[in-house]
């Protein structure tokens, strides 16, 4: 008889409606527990079955499945290296609530904060439920599936100052009209004797500065 059926049977004795499902998947034993009865079930697992260590709490957003969210508690019994995953399923509401297991395993403190930060689940009974990774004033919960990955669009443009650079790089030659100062090896450096003014990139455009010696500006204007 597998230990999973022991856990299921024992929990069913004292809290009949707690366990919704018990299955083994890919060598991991999983107990799906109802959110309301999470704390008594957790206490039972810790005291009677020796699951003293809470390794991790992880949330998963299974949109468009209903119930949308999964919260997995990964437990470890140190005596004989038994593992168990307790799963709580949460509905698709703006801020799903579930009880905090911080009284059962103090390790839950930061893990619950992490899950709140990334998914927005509210753990009732947690003494200091604040964001832990994102800045305090961040809006949104990044690991939800409707939150975009973010970032910037990356474009690979052909640099017009060099002809042939993208086809045969070793045969690239400067285009007619010269290479702009910012791409030259000496970066348009001027000597003390022939100083004609700061390079165009240093002069603020809004102030109407005159780009005296830099041929790039009409090119750049044409590009834009």
């Amino acid at each position: 008889m597998s230990p999973l059926t022991d856990y299921h049977a024992r929990i069913r004795e004292s809290i009949p409606e707690a366990v919704l499902e018990a299955r083994t998947e890919l060598g991991n034993e999983i107990l799906v527990v109802d959110a309301e009865h999470l704390v008594p079930a957790a206490t039972l697992l810790r005291d009677e079955f020796g699951f003293e260590m809470l390794l991790d709490i992880s949330g998963v957003d299974w949109v468009p499945r209903e119930p949308r969210y999964d919260v997995n508690y990964h437990l470890l019994a140190l005596d004989d290296n038994r593992r168990l995953r307790v799963k709580v399923q949460l509905p698709d509401v703006e801020a799903p609530h579930l009880p905090s297991v911080i009284e059962v395993w103090p390790a839950a403190d930061w893990h619950e904060r992490e899950v709140y930060d990334f998914f927005g689940f509210v753990f009732d009974g947690h003494p200091y439920l604040r964001r832990i990774f994102m800045p305090d004033e961040w809006i949104g919960h990044p690991l939800r599936k409707d939150y975009p990955v973010g970032g910037v669009p990356v474009e690979y443009r052909i640099e017009p100052a060099y002809v042939g650079a993208n086809i045969v790089p070793s045969r690239a030659r400067p285009a007619a009209g010269g290479v702009p100062a910012r791409l030259r090896r000496d970066r348009g450096r001027q000597s003390h004797w022939t100083w004609t003014g700061p390079p165009a990139s240093d002069v603020r455009r809004e102030a109407g500065g005159a780009p005296a010696s830099d041929e790039a500006t009409p090119e750049e204007k044409a590009k834009e």
Binding site: M134, Y147, P148, V149, G150, G151, V152, V154
Partner: peptide, 12 residues
């Protein structure tokens, strides 16, 4: 340039 992490969390 943000490297391989072109996402919400890293300054590009």
């Amino acid at each position: 340039c943000g490297g391989m992490f072109n996402n919400y969390a890293i300054l590009q």
